[in-house]
């Protein structure tokens, strides 16, 4: 074998190898091609269906809805300050919890049933007073429903009471004024810390002793003769004479014995100070004024 022959064989062998690879390449290319051929109509169809589906959605108002939703988002952004959003962030966990609870199947069922019932009731003639009364008396389910409503109302009442006691009226009134502010009410409510007490409470103190809203000393144990004298001065009953003190001592001892503040009749019959003098000693309401000075609760009763 000559050298040139050997070279030629080597070249042939290489070509063979390459041609094998080429064949594989070509066949793979063919497979891809046929796949494409097969896929193309399907893809076209799919695209068509997609477009149709989108068109359908458009027809059904989804995009209008989306556009409107965008407006809403715009309004929300314009209407809320960064602080609002920050406060909202603090509440997100609670809100999510609320959403989760609302979307429980039970609750949704209840809502559905309620809506159905409301629709049904709307189609019926309204019952008379007697009909309602009968329903509340005879129908056990109605009674149960009433009980549920009552307990819900009670919870709402409790919550409202709590939130008003946490904030002074002064902060709530402006909140009720504008709708814009109303949205902040729940977040703003817990803001005033107990240390930053509402003004009326702060003003209701006399020498460090708590005074009730209608001017009586909160705890009768806080009372000292000095506090009594101070109270008398603020009520315009000063100086306290022996006759004043006689009434006050009697009122205190009566309260300690019976647990109730004496009314005017009890004071006159018990202390020996006659009605006329009592009215002179404590002008305006004598029993109430004496109770305020004596550091005992407001007397009750009509006589």
């Amino acid at each position: 074998m000559t050298a040139s022959e050997q070279d030629l064989r080597r070249v042939e062998a290489k070509i063979d190898a390459v041609s094998e690879q080429l064949a594989a390449l070509v066949s793979s290319q063919q497979r891809t091609h046929s796949l494409y051929d097969e896929m193309a109509p399907i893809a076209t169809q799919a695209l068509g269906v997609g477009a149709e589906r989108l068109h359908d959605l458009e027809q059904r108002g989804y995009f209008d809805f989306g556009r409107e939703a965008l407006h809403v988002v715009d309004k929300v952004i314009a209407g809320y300050t960064p602080e609002d959003v920050h406060e909202l962030g603090d509440q997100v966990v609670r809100i999510l919890g609320l959403v989760r609870r609302i979307t429980q199947p039970d609750v949704l069922n209840l809502a559905e049933v309620t809506a159905d019932a409301a629709q049904d009731a709307g189609q019926q003639d309204p019952p008379g007073v007697l009909g309602i009364l009968k329903a509340t008396q005879r129908d056990e389910e109605v009674r149960r429903g009433l009980m549920v409503v009552v307990s819900v109302l009670r919870q709402i009442g409790l919550a409202a009471h709590k939130s008003t006691s946490e904030t002074s009226l002064a902060t709530i009134n402006p909140l009720l004024g504008g709708q814009r502010n109303l949205t902040r009410a729940p977040a703003a409510a817990p803001a005033p810390a107990p240390t930053q007490a509402p003004e009326p409470v702060a003003a209701r103190q006399l020498a460090g002793v708590d005074i009730t809203a209608d001017g009586f000393i909160e705890r009768s144990d806080d009372w000292t003769p000095a506090i009594g004298a101070l109270m008398a001065e603020t009520l315009g009953v000063s100086p306290l004479t022996d006759r004043h003190l006689k009434v006050i001592d009697f009122a205190r001892s009566e309260y300690e014995q019976t647990g109730a503040s004496p009314n005017i009749r009890r004071i006159t019959s018990g202390s020996g100070v006659p009605t006329k003098e009592l009215y002179a000693l404590f002008p305006r309401a004598p029993a109430k004024t004496a109770a305020k000075i004596a550091g005992i609760p407001k007397p009750v009763g009509c006589i």
Partner: peptide
């Protein structure tokens, strides 16, 4: 009347 007087 008495209640009125008692309330000033």
């Amino acid at each position: 009347a008495n209640g009125a007087r008692q309330s000033g």
